[in-house]
Design a protein around this nucleic acid. Structure first.
Lengths: 236, 236
DNA sequence: ACCGGTACTGTCACTAGTGCCAGTTTCTTC
DNA sequence: GAAGAAACTGGCACTAGTGACAGTACCGGT
């Protein structure tokens, strides 16, 4: 199975999930790709096998805002054990209770899949076994999960880069636009940037305006924030 | 061994390398953490077992600037096979020839370890075996390498966060400062932020001024750029 | 020869951000 | 009970950024 993934043969989430469930004793899977936006998360891609009812419950109650598993996995690098998250955030007990009520197990692990450009992703794995059983199973197969998750994630990213190539082309910045954003991120004013680049201040404004339009933002500050997050400008 | 890593017991690179070489048939290891800096790479952390002579050669000749393995691994998510990189970049043949001359094998794999906040890292694994042998060994143990790399990387990041915590404490932002920066990064003006937070516009300016002073920057734009890069404003 | 994209320059009116001065209140911590 | 940090508020002078109007010059591609 891992060979299939490695050759980039599986970019269909449903297919990947089926493969995983057939290969391992996995009850449910969830793949989430998101980027931070103000104090919320902008969900870029979400695939799972929990079914419509659970998803409905999860979204309408805004549970993704308090889910400790999301918080830990999207913030870190280390695999997050569901029960660990549960114990560390007792105030989220209702969330787990709700999950149990609709027949979902509370055993599982969430694998952080950090991506370039400030985006974050995770693959959550939910199993239907006792704590003792899971402890052993996990020890044996965590490495498989991790590799499979990484390869699937890589496939998803590559696929996204290919299909959204046209959409991304719209917001590709020119050399000068990148330069003025970079200097702006370094705290330079229009006048200073003009002096540095040896062009008129008006031209700097022109490039910056174009950059704002392309990035679809309303201020230089927002443009720089977005550019840094999307790695459109070099780090100083 | 993986259990040791998972418990965060191994944050000493030399120790980790020894453990890996004892457990697997690995010749050499290299761990690199870097962030993009203009068109160069700023190396944040570098540990390896290649010895002083190889490192000297590598650094003095500026080989890290052309090394295709670095380029592929720091840019992607998928494991990079050394021989694949070699074939795809024939112009880098001298690099591999040099490596062979000083007795290094050309078989191995580089595992990208993307981190939060735009940084990138990789663990390169170098083995001393034939292509056929490596092909089989790799198939069996890539998942072990991947998990070990992830756990070690997680340990390194956590360790870094702890040790640099004291130095960074001076410029720790308060809750409100973080909030106004976050909304500013989202393109909101002072007036809008004041409305959102339910405080006066003057107070927003006050927090922003404090944030600028703490971050030692001259504009909101620069403050936001720095905050995004250093992950001072919510990534979750 | 024309077109689209990039690089470049200009003015005007308006809004937003910056640095400086000055305060009060509430809470934790020693 | 004193000290400090954090959250909050006001005004004034000045500079910087923003949007909308307008242009010219150069280069590579069908």
């Amino acid at each position: 199975m891992l060979e299939i993934l490695e050759c980039g043969g599986c970019v269909e989430p449903a297919h990947f999930f089926t493969l995983m469930r057939r290969t391992f004793r996995i009850a449910h899977l969830l793949y989430l790709e998101a980027e931070p936006y103000a104090d919320e998360l902008k969900i870029c891609r979400l695939h799972h096998t929990f079914g419509a009812y659970a998803a409905e419950l999860y979204l309408t109650r805004g549970l993704y805002r308090i889910d400790p598993i999301l918080k830990l996995a999207l913030g870190g690098v280390r695999p997050v054990e569901w029960t660990t998250a549960r114990h560390r955030f007792p105030e989220c007990e209702p969330l787990f209770k709700t999950a149990e009520e609709i027949g979902l197990s509370s055993e599982g692990v969430a694998l952080p899949l950090p991506s370039p450009a400030g985006r974050m992703a995770l693959l959550a794995i939910n199993v239907n076994m006792s704590a003792a059983e899971w402890s052993i199973y996990r020890r044996n197969h965590l490495r498989d999960f991790q590799l499979a998750a990484n390869l699937f994630h890589a496939g998803m990213l590559e696929n996204a880069a290919m299909t959204s190539g046209a959409a991304t082309r719209e917001m590709r910045l020119t050399g000068r636009e990148t330069e003025v954003l970079t200097w702006s991120a370094a705290g330079k004013s229009y006048w200073e940037i003009a002096t540095i680049l040896g062009i008129s201040e008006r031209t700097v404004r022109f490039f910056m305006t174009n950059a704002r339009r392309k990035l679809n933002v309303v201020s230089n500050t927002q443009a720089v924030a977005q550019a840094v997050r999307h790695a459109l400008i070099p780090t100083v």
